[in-house]
Simulated scan of single mutants.
Amino acid sequence: MAAGTRRQTKKSSIRLADIARETGYSLATVSKALNGRADVSEETRQAINTVLRKYGYSRKATTGKKQKLIEIVFQDFDNVWALEVMRGAIREAKLHDLSVITTEGGDRQHPDSTWIDNMLRRQIAGAILVFSNLTRIEQNKLHSRGIPFVLFDPFGDPDPATLSVQADNWTGGVIATRHLLALGHKRIGIITGPEEMMCSKARLDGYTSALAEHGIPADPELITEGDFTTPGGYAQAISLLENPHRPTAIFAGSDLQAMGVYEAARQLGLRIPEDLSVVGFDDVQTASFLGPALTTVKQPLQDMARASVRMLVEALTTDDVLQPHVIMPTSLVVRNSTQQLDE
């Protein structure tokens, strides 16, 4: 095999974990060094760069007007969830001398039809698409101009060649349901997100898996489909709670839906958590200020946004992204909206 071929093979197969293992540094340190973070010593940076050169990993030039602007595409920008994403992106972009702009429009599956051409005229460096994806033609337009994009919490199963960042939604569904089961709840309702979304399916699968661990079959009467909004959460909670054999706990697939559950419980004269335990998902900034403070699954939205920006920077400055698909861990934040079920 020719030397050039060997180098290309190594280059295409090297990953972040390989660099960390060979240098002895953590994944976080390697990522910081690759992204030019100031909190990495020059000695560490040189050691990591030496290994990168060994595998034929080279950086692209970063000159040019378009390198200064990142665009985030939302279906809508009218809630605290979107704000959390923006906060993380802006903070990370600032470290790389980048600015962030937003576009609102389209639906969960695709941006507005005029977005791609308008974006090209804006000469952005890269794009973060929240939920939605692009057609093959649109992807080719970006690739031909050297504009990378990242799918944030992708709507469906992303193409292996597409950069993506998401949370471990299945584990989130498991730990939320296990928490309620540990408190003695057996009739646990769930308000999912749109059934066609990958994150909704994963959270529902986690819920049913946790029930199965305790020998409890999933009851279709306790499973409702929401839309990740507060009005949707309210409407679905009303349908669950007006049932004569109502659930004693509800797992809402988002904190916004959990807020709707709170309002439904208030209107029906149910106290949280005395009469109804509630668990949300996301841990948006307002979750801890609800009355009572919301127990929820923390989806690290700001960290996910920061990782998305770092991936764009890496795609702009190197020939390969070492970690093209990031799945971030979820964790349970226990507050005051859940309690032991009184038998």
Rank of each mutant, 00 (worst) to 15 (best):
4 G>Q: 11
5 T>D: 05
8 Q>C: 03
9 T>Q: 12
10 K>W: 07
13 S>P: 03
19 I>C: 05
20 A>C: 07
21 R>T: 10
26 S>L: 09
27 L>I: 15
30 V>G: 06
36 G>F: 12
37 R>L: 12
42 E>Q: 08
50 T>E: 13
50 T>R: 06
52 L>Y: 11
53 R>D: 08
53 R>W: 11
55 Y>W: 15
55 Y>C: 15
57 Y>G: 09
59 R>W: 05
59 R>G: 10
61 A>N: 15
63 T>K: 10
64 G>P: 15
66 K>C: 12
69 L>I: 10
70 I>M: 13
71 E>T: 09
72 I>M: 13
72 I>E: 14
81 W>V: 14
85 V>E: 04
89 A>W: 11
91 R>P: 02
92 E>R: 14
93 A>H: 10
93 A>Y: 09
96 H>D: 03
96 H>L: 14
96 H>E: 04
97 D>N: 13
101 I>P: 07
101 I>L: 12
102 T>I: 14
107 D>E: 11
107 D>M: 12
113 S>W: 01
116 I>Y: 05
117 D>F: 05
118 N>P: 00
119 M>H: 06
120 L>M: 12
125 A>G: 12
130 V>K: 06
133 N>D: 12
134 L>K: 02
134 L>V: 04
134 L>F: 02
139 Q>N: 02
142 L>G: 01
149 F>K: 04
150 V>Y: 03
153 D>H: 13
156 G>N: 11
161 A>L: 11
162 T>A: 06
163 L>K: 10
164 S>K: 06
167 A>G: 14
169 N>F: 05
171 T>V: 07
174 V>Q: 13
179 H>M: 10
180 L>D: 09
181 L>E: 03
182 A>Y: 02
185 H>T: 05
188 I>G: 06
190 I>N: 13
190 I>C: 14
192 T>M: 06
192 T>P: 03
193 G>Q: 08
196 E>I: 13
197 M>R: 10
198 M>H: 14
200 S>I: 07
201 K>Y: 13
202 A>Y: 03
209 S>I: 00
210 A>L: 04
217 P>M: 11
217 P>R: 13
219 D>F: 10
227 D>G: 07
228 F>K: 08
231 P>Q: 00
233 G>M: 12
235 A>I: 00
235 A>Y: 00
235 A>M: 02
240 L>W: 06
241 L>F: 11
245 H>D: 13
246 R>C: 03
246 R>G: 03
248 T>H: 08
249 A>Q: 08
250 I>T: 04
254 S>Y: 06
255 D>L: 04
255 D>A: 09
256 L>C: 03
257 Q>K: 04
258 A>T: 03
260 G>N: 01
264 A>N: 02
264 A>M: 01
265 A>G: 02
266 R>N: 04
268 L>C: 00
273 P>L: 05
273 P>W: 04
276 L>C: 15
277 S>C: 05
279 V>N: 09
284 V>R: 06
285 Q>M: 12
285 Q>E: 13
286 T>I: 13
294 L>W: 01
295 T>E: 02
295 T>K: 01
297 V>E: 05
297 V>F: 09
304 M>Y: 01
306 R>Y: 02
307 A>E: 12
308 S>G: 11
310 R>E: 09
311 M>S: 15
316 L>V: 01
316 L>S: 06
318 T>V: 03
322 L>E: 05
322 L>K: 04
323 Q>D: 15
324 P>Y: 10
324 P>S: 08
326 V>K: 05
330 T>R: 10
339 Q>M: 07
339 Q>W: 00
343 E>M: 14
